[in-house]
Design a protein around this nucleic acid. Structure first.
Lengths: 124, 124
DNA sequence: CTGGATCCCACGCGATACTG
DNA sequence: CAGTATCGCGTGGGATCCAG
């Protein structure tokens, strides 16, 4: 977070990464590309529920930041593939780390949340 | 992400964690608490730019999910401290991992972004 | 000092229709 | 098939006022 600054603030470099990760689709797309290049339509299908707009928009951002490469074949009908760069693969590994953390701690979180519901604490 | 499902989707458990992390303030607060318990007002100051509302709201969520403990001293004027639980410390370690990733890759990202600006690619 | 309640805006995102 | 443009909503978040 580069959070050792004073004060801890929103203008640290990692904020952009957090926004990227926190975005609704970027991580899902990156994970879809882990196995190799994927065509646009196939991405649409693999990422369930994403709209055309968000797919393109997210891909553009990922491309701009160097996580994804766009490969356009000069054919008709058009054919486009997206594939992870080294940086993108690095990000996908970070995603796997986060996934492992979730796997390890998800039950604990749900459990605590459940008890919080049953015993609502009043902070008066 | 539990993303190995078919299709990759938004309804995986890790989504909640991504939302938490992607939220504007949660991670910053967790990092502030790494060194030990902190009082509310002190948190306000350490996390630059956060509003009262968001501070309280984020703390409530963190408390509900078991990342943070609220310690209220029966004094007047009131005094409240927040401190990380074991789960919270675990999350803060994940945050440090992410931070390290950013440190290692931030220059590359900025560089690529800069070149993308200079050489706008048209996906027509 | 801590924290709740309201009002309000920005923007992330979805739905739809349209081009090559 | 791939991508763009437009419209509209839901909600995350800020500002402000109020209470114990």
């Amino acid at each position: 977070m580069f959070l050792q600054a004073d004060p801890y603030n929103m203008n640290c470099p990692s904020r952009e990464i957090l926004d990227l990760i926190g975005g609704k689709w970027a991580i899902l797309i990156v994970c879809c590309l882990q196995q190799g290049p994927v065509r646009t339509g196939e991405l649409m299908r693999q990422v369930g529920g994403i709209s055309q707009k968000m797919l393109t928009q997210t891909l553009r951002n990922l491309e701009r930041d160097g996580f994804v490469e766009r490969i356009s074949y000069p054919e008709v009908p058009p054919r486009v593939e997206y594939r992870l760069t080294d940086l993108g693969r690095s990000l996908s590994e970070l995603a796997r780390t986060m996934e492992q953390w979730v796997v390890a701690n998800y039950a604990t979180i749900l459990d605590h949340r459940q008890r919080a519901l049953e015993t609502p604490s009043d902070h008066a």
